[in-house]
């Protein structure tokens, strides 16, 4: 039989114990609005752990989100944060980064925000190798607006705008990011908490366009609609059907409905960032008349 745990409210206070994620949150906003079994909060734990492990000066880390359930992350994190308009997290973050080259700018948003309405910004920021870390919480749907089909929805499941099942070919996001020139591309699920935290840590230290896809359940609008159970059932699916394949060819990591999920670090390479290229180019064109801009990255 289950018993209530013996109550000792003072133990935490007495020894200054605290949930390690708490210092990273605006605690007055907790409890958050995410549904029971939604995986977004789990990705936040991983991000908090990565920030701790990075030892970064948090005054030099900014987080930018678009609109969506995932977009709420910027509002819950106790960092300099910007909750921008739908799809525009990347252009906003680009401006922030270029005006403050010493800052580590993290874009944290949903699959719909980043790759549907924001898809154009995504491909061009990757092409330019803009020095941003982009974390995409992929729940295969537009959560916040009621479960419409997203560019990531696999062929098969029903969504409110595809009531008889989706027939559109989805994006394979790691392949998209890779093809556009991202220097770091990884995919993990919220089952892989430790690996996700490690990827986020590596991403924080990597210079250039970093893309990390975090597969996460939306029980309310994706799983239940398709009789896939609750959040925890999606985590069990991730556990069962994911295979770790570091260095996999990103062409081969597309996801079929409830099919195998290839996870791992797929791309880790170096390429001049947009600022590096600009400095080099104008250095050549103007010689001594040009002063390089933003060369020292405060977080390196």
């Amino acid at each position: 039989m289950n018993e209530l745990p013996s109550f000792d409210a003072n133990l935490e206070q007495e020894f200054g114990l605290i949930n390690p994620v708490m210092p990273y949150l605006r605690q007055d906003r907790i409890p958050h609005i995410w549904c029971p079994g939604c995986g977004i909060g789990t990705t936040v734990n991983c991000f908090a752990r990565a920030l701790t492990d990075s030892g970064m000066d948090l005054d030099k880390v900014a987080i930018v989100s678009g609109i969506g359930c995932t977009g709420r992350v910027a509002g819950y994190m106790n960092l300099d944060s910007f909750h921008t308009t739908h799809g525009r997290a990347i252009p906003f973050a680009t401006g922030l980064k270029l005006a403050n080259p010493g800052m580590k700018v993290v874009v944290y948003s949903g699959d719909g925000d980043l790759t549907a309405i924001g898809g154009n910004h995504f491909v061009h920021a990757a092409r330019r190798n803009m020095d941003l870390m982009v974390v995409c919480v992929n729940n295969f749907t537009y959560g916040m607006t009621g479960g419409q089909v997203a560019p990531t929805t696999p062929v098969g499941p029903s969504q409110t705008t595809m009531p008889y099942g989706n027939f559109e070919n989805p994006f394979n996001l790691p392949f998209l990011a890779d093809a556009c020139g991202a220097v770091y591309v990884a995919r993990w699920t919220v089952y892989h908490v430790k690996q996700l935290a490690k990827a986020l840590l590596e991403g924080l230290h990597k210079k250039g366009f970093v893309f990390i896809e975090a597969m996460s359940p939306c029980p309310t609008l994706y799983s239940r609609r398709n009789r896939l159970g609750d959040g925890v059932d999606q985590l069990k699916y991730y556990k069962e059907k994911s295979v770790i394949r570091n260095g996999a060819d990103t062409k081969e990591v597309g996801i079929a409905y409830q099919g195998e999920i290839v996870v791992g670090k797929f791309v880790d390479r170096d390429r001049p960032t947009w600022l590096d290229s600009m400095n080099e180019h104008y250095g050549k064109v103007f010689g001594d008349r040009f002063t390089p801009y933003g060369v020292t990255d405060g977080q390196e």
């Binding site: 949930n19 994620v21 977004i40 909060g41 789990t42 734990n45 991983c46 752990r49 919220v190």
Partner: peptide
């Protein structure tokens, strides 16, 4: 080990 804390999406356990 705090794995429960890393999983908890509601920051309710550690």
């Amino acid at each position: 080990c705090d794995l429960c804390g890393l999983y908890c999406p509601d920051f309710a356990i550690y």
